[in-house]
Nucleic acid binder design. Sequence first.
DNA 1: AGCCTTTATGATACAGAGAATCACCGCACC
DNA 2: GGTGCGGTGATTCTCTGTATCATAAAGGCT
Lengths: 144, 144
Amino acid sequence: MSKASHLKDIGLKATGPRLTILELFENSETRHLSAEDIYRKLLSDEVDIGLATIYRVLTQFEQAGILVRHHFESGKAVYELNQGGHHDHMVCVGCGTVTEFFDPEIERLQERIAKQHGFAIQDHSLYLYGECAECQSRRAPGKR
Amino acid sequence: MSKASHLKDIGLKATGPRLTILELFENSETRHLSAEDIYRKLLSDEVDIGLATIYRVLTQFEQAGILVRHHFESGKAVYELNQGGHHDHMVCVGCGTVTEFFDPEIERLQERIAKQHGFAIQDHSLYLYGECAECQSRRAPGKR
DNA sequence: AGCCTTTATGATACAGAGAATCACCGCACC
DNA sequence: GGTGCGGTGATTCTCTGTATCATAAAGGCT
């Protein structure tokens, strides 16, 4: 299915900005992008899309399930392509790198805890913050 | 140890606003308070503390380890008394109630995953969002 | 107690992320 | 080829939270 018809299927016109932003996610090295990231990236590519449009499109894509939104500690929201599999995130406080992981055991334990409290989970967020291997050795070479 | 000397020990003068805010946390029904919550609570108690002061004091208390800060999905930061034991949170999207829990197994698994990636955890945040038992039965009485 | 230095306070201005507004544009449909 | 309607982008607004700065209050000292 083409990108254009994919957008139409969810009730959104296949406009220039929307296709551009979608392609940006598909071609980006870094999976996780903030509105600002996208804005600046497009500016440097000589593509002029207003910041308001970017926020709008990101929100629409999130509601349509094309993107998933995360709030890391930075305070600003980042988005990534929704490729089906749920996963959690490990964020390096040194370089900002985001590593994804999935642990079925943790998922199961969360469900068990919720059940114990009569709580119906709709969503959850698990972020590990710390230092990645590269940043550790950069900071203390020789060690470890 | 008195509250006043506790504050002095961490290098903070025992001023009115600081003692008031500390007592508010100790006497509050709801463990988790935002700056706004505190501001409005104090206003209704005829205590006039500037919002700037509240933000400052909260930040200082967090740095001193007296309070712990959380970012739920609401976007605004909430604080709770740091009473030693780490725990995670379950937030009801219906009524906003926050339930605390601790699962040593989940903690252990997080550490294992980090180690597998050579990642040194400094901190983590785990929030479960969903509907609490009360809200479920309120929405669909009779069911479940 | 009274002085004096330091720190805290509160009003206000500012900053940054993101949402709302609104005139204009352009595509789809008649 | 008009016309209607959703989409766009410039701008304004809102909401948290921070920085500024003149004034006030703590706490040490005598």
